[in-house]
Computed example of a mutant assay.
Amino acid sequence: MEKDNLEELFKNMQGAFDTEEPAKGHQMRFLEKLNSTGEKATTVTKKKSWLWKPLSIAASIAILLGLAYGQLNSNTSLENQVAEISPEVAKSQFYFASLIEEQVKELEAEETPETKKIISDTMVQLKTLETDYQNLEKELIKGGNSKLILSAMITNFQTRIDLLNDVLSQIETIKNLKNYNDENFTI
């Protein structure tokens, strides 16, 4: 009902609105009339604050730096959080990681044109297993079934070690076959 009254009011006043800007000096004439009544009036000028732009930029940068620091800090503390949940996992992780690193160096030292493909495939599989391990760490931190997750983490390490041992064995076989073929080849 009230909406209808407003619409009717605006329909009746259509064309009667003053949309023109006041003439120059209007504000001064208004103030003179106001002062003549005995009240003191002054003009109010807007002061533009020059400080708000730099402060807002600085605040934005501070927020972005805070978010970046939080993101970096959460990545580094993942291992610390796992160590807090299970110190045994941290010890076994150090042991297995050093063993795997040693075998990877040995594998990379054996790279030849004949073994290049198998080594590159092995590295891809190791990266996949490492990603799976990181996901298991995250699940452990979230509070999943810790015994099951810890077992899966150890199995992941053992799988990586078995993979590296198998590949090193295959490379040794390839080297032996190459030597055997070279010995039987006559000119």
Rank of each mutant, 00 (worst) to 15 (best):
L6E: 05
E7K: 04
F10T: 13
F17H: 11
A23R: 06
R29I: 13
E32L: 09
K33R: 13
L34T: 07
L34I: 14
T45A: 03
W50Y: 09
L51P: 11
L51E: 06
W52F: 10
S56Y: 06
I57A: 05
I57H: 09
A58R: 03
I61S: 13
I61K: 08
G66K: 00
L67R: 05
A68P: 10
N73I: 05
N73V: 07
E79I: 15
E79V: 12
N80V: 13
A83D: 08
I85S: 00
P87R: 01
P87M: 05
E88D: 09
S92D: 09
Q93V: 09
Y95Q: 07
E110S: 12
T112R: 01
T112F: 02
T115W: 02
K116E: 08
L129P: 03
D132V: 04
Y133S: 01
L150K: 13
L150R: 11
S151T: 08
A152R: 10
M153N: 08
F157A: 09
R160I: 07
I161N: 01
D162P: 07
L163K: 14
L164N: 01
N165H: 11
D166E: 09
K178R: 11
K178P: 11
Y180E: 14
E183F: 03
E183C: 02
T186C: 02
I187K: 04
